[in-house]
Simulated assay, not measured.
Amino acid sequence: MAATALLLSPHPDDLAWSLGGAVRGLTEAGVGLAGQTFFGTTRYAPGDPAHGTLEAVAVRAAEEDAWAAWAGVRLTRHDLSDASLRGYTDETEMGAEPAAEVVDSAAALLGAALDAVAPDLVLAPLAVGGHVDHAAVRQAVLRVAPAAPVVWYEDLPYADGRSAAYAAHTVTVDLGARWAAKATGVHHFPSQLPGEVLPVLHRHGERLWTDDAAAAALLTDLLAGSLVAS
């Protein structure tokens, strides 16, 4: 039976930004990919006339649906309100502690997803940089404690320029020939100004972290030749 991975995304673009190369490699390896996007209600779409209004919800949903169909991800998107609708600014959303009720909601959605998907592996945001929505998803994962191994991905673009070790084992994605595919995926999100973020994504690359040696080995085995674990 083919392995299944559950990919957790705070916002509609986070998987393409942070895991585009890994997603392509997992798809090529025949891994079944299920995605869960938590904060689907937003008014943030700086590259689209809908920016600043709730019309941004439909714009970003259409972008993410197109990306998921192209990438081979079976996607479920939830309607939690993102930080822009909960009173945060671009400055205050970084480093803020998520409200308990927001973590509660994310944890409930995650628990249902784990029951429905029964994944062999969970890929979740580290919350590098401290974006409050990313922190909420991370806290939900820690609370629910999935039975499947958890591998944490570095959140882009927030992780750019950071080189800290976040866990015992790192899995570095060799984008190599997959960079063109990742860039194509990013261009599915014109409302998020892909031309501005692509240089950051290319410069930083993709890294994943886990304290579970077996999880690192499993991910490496699934993507033999595209990842290097240590």
Rank of each mutant, 00 (worst) to 15 (best):
residue 187 H to R: 15
residue 44 Y to C: 00
residue 208 L to F: 12
residue 61 A to T: 14
residue 184 T to C: 11
residue 215 A to L: 06
residue 31 V to Y: 00
residue 157 P to W: 07
residue 219 L to W: 10
residue 218 L to F: 14
residue 172 T to I: 01
residue 20 G to W: 07
residue 111 G to N: 08
residue 63 E to Q: 04
residue 43 R to H: 11
residue 135 A to R: 15
residue 188 H to C: 15
residue 199 P to F: 07
residue 43 R to L: 11
residue 126 L to M: 14
residue 41 T to H: 12
residue 2 A to T: 14
residue 202 H to F: 14
residue 58 A to H: 08
residue 98 P to L: 12
residue 228 V to I: 13
residue 226 S to T: 14
residue 183 A to K: 12
residue 200 V to S: 04
residue 221 D to N: 10
residue 76 T to R: 15
residue 12 P to V: 12
residue 29 A to E: 08
residue 176 G to D: 09
residue 216 A to M: 08
residue 172 T to G: 05
residue 35 G to I: 03
residue 190 P to D: 03
residue 195 G to M: 01
residue 112 A to K: 14
residue 178 R to M: 10
residue 89 T to H: 10
residue 133 D to S: 05
residue 78 H to Y: 08
residue 182 K to G: 00
residue 82 D to T: 03
residue 5 A to Y: 01
residue 13 D to I: 01
residue 67 W to N: 00
residue 223 L to Y: 13
residue 213 A to N: 12
residue 136 A to Y: 06
residue 198 L to G: 05
residue 185 G to D: 06
residue 185 G to N: 04
residue 198 L to P: 09
residue 37 T to D: 04
residue 173 V to M: 13
residue 66 A to Q: 05
residue 150 V to H: 07
residue 55 E to A: 13
residue 167 A to L: 05
residue 166 Y to L: 10
residue 136 A to P: 02
residue 122 V to N: 06
residue 79 D to W: 06
residue 22 A to K: 03
residue 160 D to Y: 13
residue 61 A to E: 15
residue 137 V to P: 06
residue 190 P to N: 03
residue 178 R to C: 06
residue 167 A to S: 06
